[in-house]
Design a binder for these strands. Structure first.
Lengths: 232, 232
DNA sequence: CGGTATCCCCGTCGATACTG
DNA sequence: CAGTATCGACGGGGATACCG
């Protein structure tokens, strides 16, 4: 566990638990709903499994997470105390989206983008049956330029290799632009009008694509300059 | 600066700046109003001056703090971005006050208690002229059992040695009890009725003492069990 | 799938002393 | 008052390999 600050202040006591590297990001993953070890890993790809394991146990000891064994499956579930960290995560994301400047190229990880988008597919507005969305990021590092989202009644899968199904629509554009859309710094409509992002496919579907994905809540936070706010 | 998480998520970008040891506590100090190096030190007594200096410079580089030189005085002032960290600090304190269990003896630092109380004296309701409040914590470590708060038109001073003035009222009790009052876990009225805390002095003043101090905002946060909430 | 074991390095932090 | 300088240790965390 993080060592003590020797202060009775609740901020200090809270940060003793939360200020170690990765801990807050792990809490974020739990807050947005991941519960399985390997799902958590997909949201934290740079974190070693050893460290993820250690952090999870720390959170269990701290009463923030409950480790649930169900048959041969393990789930990590937020306790009441853990769930109440949601406002902290939200406050951090609001601050971040307002005050973090331009992202570095290193921050634009397409696997994280697709993993996050896959969690936020609004299946109710996606056509029935199997829908395959291909993403193409021509500027991304080799090997990370093509992604597929396979949406079906079974759920949503992320693929970094061609799953072999017919592609319903193809979305092409700079990775940075797609991230800007996702973070709420660029509106779908502006991106499409300005040809920053190109969507290929049957025209009825092409128009509908933006509504297939629910942007994260922080995307709607007004920006300091009063520049850009994404219209819903 | 903290090393990167290589994620575009605003929580990750925020935590790159904020998750290093002491950083959030330093922000807390700035949020509650300390601006001078040595005032900051008093709120962070276990932090080495080297590290405090480094953290301040990091916050300046991050655009969270502005270093203002005025004559031969230096002030560290929150920028707009820094001030907007207030909700983060508040969310953390709300969480902490609800979910941190019993404090360790090591967390009960009387210097921090007095330093925090001195910032929250409501001068409007303290008698005019010089008022001296002596605190006695018989159970505290030797050398930290006696404290004086000197309240006058000039401001409020904390003394760990007898300033020599006549004492107006004396507050005696366990350090832990005083901290519990301060954090909102114990009401003044209950403490006085139960003789957990004893106030000595002219009876008119004795009754007024609790109102001389404004409890921190988080003290009023309802507790999970629905146990104790401090009546205003 | 859900983790452990190990190993080593580097950076952080703490302590102490000192300066304009 | 407002910091720097220096130094050493320790342990956090990254990488990799491996197990039930």
């Amino acid at each position: 566990m993080g060592s003590s600050y020797y202060q009775f202040c609740p901020v200090a006591k809270a940060m003793e638990l939360l200020d170690e590297r990765w801990t807050m990001l792990l809490v974020r993953e739990l807050v947005v709903g991941s519960q399985r070890f390997n799902d958590l890993r997909r949201g934290l790809p740079r974190m070693s499994p050893t460290l993820l394991s250690r952090r999870l146990h720390q959170l269990v000891r701290a009463g923030i997470v409950q480790r649930r064994v169900e048959g041969n499956e393990v789930r990590y579930v937020l306790t009441r105390a853990g769930d109440e960290l949601r406002p902290v995560v939200e406050a951090l994301s609001v601050w971040g989206v307002r005050w973090i400047g331009e992202l570095g190229d290193q921050d634009l990880d397409p696997s994280l983008l697709l993993w996050d988008m896959h969690r936020n597919v609004d299946r109710a507005v996606v056509p029935d049956g199997r829908t395959v969305v291909q993403f193409r990021f021509p500027d991304a590092p080799a090997g990370t330029r093509n992604w597929w989202l396979v949406i079906s009644g079974d759920g949503v899968d992320v693929c970094d290799a061609d799953p072999g199904f017919d592609v319903t629509v193809t979305i092409t554009g700079a990775l940075r632009s797609m991230v800007r859309i996702w973070n709420g710094d660029l509106a779908w409509s502006d991106a499409l009008r300005g040809d920053v992002i190109e969507v290929l496919g049957p025209s009825a579907l092409r128009r509908a694509v933006p509504r297939w994905f629910t942007l994260p809540a922080y995307a709607a936070v007004p920006r300091p300059g009063g520049q850009r706010s994404v219209p819903s």
